[in-house]
Design a binder for these strands. Sequence first.
DNA 1: TAATGCACCTGTGGGC
DNA 2: TGCCCACAGGTGCATT
Length: 279
Amino acid sequence: MPELPEVETVRRTLVERVVGRTIERVEVLKPSQVRHPDPETFAAELTGARFTDVERRGKYLIFHLGPVRLVAHLRMTGKLLFMPAHLPYDKHTHVVFHLDGGWQLRYVDMRTFGGFHLLFPEGEGTPRGLAELGPEPLGDRFTAAYLAEALASRRSARIKAVLLDQTVVAGLGNIYVDEALHRAGVHPERPAASLGRAEVEKLHGAIRAILGQAIEERGTSFRDYVDGVGERGGYVAFLQVYGREKAPCLTCGTPIVRRRVAGRSSHICPHCQPEAGEN
DNA sequence: TAATGCACCTGTGGGC
DNA sequence: TGCCCACAGGTGCATT
């Protein structure tokens, strides 16, 4: 579910609410959601800890609590909700951080794919996915030249698969890859190495522009996503292809088609995104 | 080595 | 109306 704009929105809603608060108790209702260390150590280490910052790397949220860091990944359906302690638990509430002042930070996840890692000062416990993340797409390291080099180095992989690879660029998911490829006029099944310089620059600009606007709109609520206080995102109104199968392309009027590419449902305008490319 | 397919788990929606 | 099946925004591991 949540891609970079959604995770960034959750971060922004939580940072102003949890920083300065102390965890009085940790309730682990579904132990498998705690990936590292064991749930007992996890709860013991966090009890009494105070939030000092919340940062984001790709789709990971990283809560700073003195010497330890709490890493959360929401995967498809995870939600982190800051709410009053008196409200009843949702059916899929798996971990509850009881905070001072009568508040709770709840982890709710219907499909249970997400979870937590606790990182110790020496770096022990860092999930591999976090350690191997590529550059932030809105950061200085993600340049058109970097993207061109990354795409050229892939032998035959399709552009869609490469953009979804978190070691190439951190934070893109199915929705924003489809939107960026459409804006750049690139078909998702094109071999990554086949893109010309102008196409790569257009794609680079599209990725940054779309993610920037999606953050401003507080993300895309297509199905389940809500931010840290339960609000839905507004970028769904700006989607050009994702979720618009059979609807006319907003650029040229050609019906949008849906096809499986790199194992993922992909939305394409056959006119704006020719399979052969422009080179 | 790189690319691809599948599993993880639950809910929803479409087809019959 | 109800049952069954395919599919869903991510990632890691096994297989090719």
